[in-house]
Amino acid sequence: MIDPSIDFSAAATALMHEQVLVAQTTSDAAAAFAAAKHRVDAQTALHAAHTRMETELINSLRQLTLQLKP
């Protein structure tokens, strides 16, 4: 038998409120993860570009050295 003292409307409202909080927390966590991933991806790309530029500089210097040798 259903207990008449239970306020189902309040229980439903509390459950919906809890679901909204869970959704908000999940959304905040997803946004933080996306920002961190973007930062890491940008750092990785910068490091790769720096490494490529160093390699190109070294290769250019080697070519110039070979051209300057008698």
Rank of each mutant, 00 (worst) to 15 (best):
44 T>W: 00
10 A>F: 05
48 A>E: 13
32 A>T: 14
15 L>M: 07
52 R>E: 02
22 V>I: 11
61 L>F: 12
67 Q>R: 15
28 D>A: 12
12 A>G: 05
15 L>P: 04
69 K>Y: 01
46 L>T: 12
6 I>P: 00
56 E>M: 12
56 E>F: 08
7 D>M: 01
30 A>T: 14
68 L>K: 04
60 S>K: 10
37 K>G: 00
29 A>C: 02
48 A>N: 11
56 E>G: 06
12 A>H: 02
39 R>H: 07
39 R>F: 09
27 S>N: 12
67 Q>I: 09
65 T>I: 11
67 Q>D: 11
38 H>W: 15
42 A>T: 14
38 H>D: 14
39 R>A: 14
50 H>S: 10
22 V>Q: 04
34 A>C: 05
2 I>S: 05
51 T>G: 03
39 R>W: 02
62 R>T: 15
56 E>K: 11
26 T>D: 12
3 D>W: 11
32 A>E: 11
25 T>N: 07
49 A>M: 08
16 M>K: 06
67 Q>G: 09
1 M>V: 13
64 L>W: 11
7 D>C: 05
47 H>M: 04
7 D>H: 04
50 H>L: 10
19 Q>W: 03
22 V>C: 03
26 T>Q: 10
38 H>I: 14
45 A>H: 01
23 A>W: 01
11 A>D: 08
36 A>M: 11
52 R>W: 02
6 I>R: 05
43 Q>E: 10
25 T>P: 00
3 D>M: 08
3 D>L: 10
23 A>R: 11
11 A>I: 08
49 A>Q: 06
52 R>S: 10
51 T>C: 03
52 R>Y: 03
63 Q>L: 12
3 D>K: 04
59 N>Q: 12
58 I>C: 13
21 L>V: 07
24 Q>L: 04
38 H>Y: 12
11 A>R: 06
56 E>S: 08
38 H>C: 07
18 E>H: 05
69 K>L: 02
17 H>Y: 06
53 M>V: 13
23 A>H: 07
64 L>K: 13
27 S>I: 00
32 A>P: 01
3 D>H: 03
37 K>I: 10
31 A>R: 06
50 H>K: 12
22 V>F: 04
